[in-house]
Computed example of a mutant assay.
Amino acid sequence: MSPNYKRYDLGQQPAGTVVEVVLSCINNIRLMDNDNFALYAESKNCRYIGGRTEKSPARLTIPRAGHWHVVVDKTGFQTLANSNVRAIPPKAIQPANAAAPRKAASPATAEAS
């Protein structure tokens, strides 16, 4: 039996982080904080940002600092999409003469369930 969803644990993220999700086919994308992911994993009602996603890549913005998860699920679809997720940190406002090298965003680690 194939998994119904794939979870990406983004860990602690600041507000304004953009989460980019690439999908191989139409699926649902759900961006959730830690508490809501726990509810989702228990098949309980939860709150999330996102939903049915037809265009890839999709970009969602984290509204507040905290521990975040992205779930790609096939609810309403036959196939779980191949997916890739990355977190893009908010851009720091810097004076033009104080440009500093930027650290590359690291991809999230996936966990199938």
Rank of each mutant, 00 (worst) to 15 (best):
M1A: 09
S2C: 06
S2N: 12
P3A: 07
N4L: 14
Y5F: 11
K6C: 12
R7H: 03
G11K: 02
A15V: 07
A15P: 06
A15G: 14
T17R: 02
V18N: 07
V19K: 04
V19H: 06
V21F: 10
V22R: 05
S24W: 04
I26M: 08
R30Y: 06
M32C: 10
D33G: 02
D35Q: 09
L39D: 15
Y40T: 01
Y40L: 05
A41E: 15
E42M: 08
E42C: 05
E42L: 12
S43F: 10
S43L: 06
R47A: 11
Y48C: 11
I49K: 11
G51S: 08
G51Y: 10
R52C: 11
T53A: 08
S56I: 04
S56R: 05
R59V: 03
T61C: 06
T61S: 10
I62Q: 08
I62W: 08
R64G: 02
A65T: 14
G66M: 10
W68I: 00
W68C: 08
H69E: 03
H69M: 04
H69L: 07
V70N: 02
V71K: 02
V71H: 04
V71Y: 06
D73R: 05
K74C: 07
K74A: 02
T75L: 13
Q78E: 11
T79W: 03
T79E: 11
A81F: 01
A81Q: 06
A81D: 04
S83F: 00
N84I: 00
V85G: 01
V85S: 03
V85K: 00
R86D: 01
A87W: 05
P89E: 07
P90I: 06
K91I: 10
Q94C: 02
Q94P: 00
A96C: 09
A98N: 09
A99D: 11
A99M: 12
A100G: 08
P101T: 12
R102Q: 15
K103T: 10
K103Q: 11
K103E: 04
A104G: 00
A104Q: 12
A104H: 08
A105P: 13
A105D: 13
S106Y: 05
S106L: 13
S106I: 08
A110H: 01
S113L: 13
S113M: 14
S113W: 12
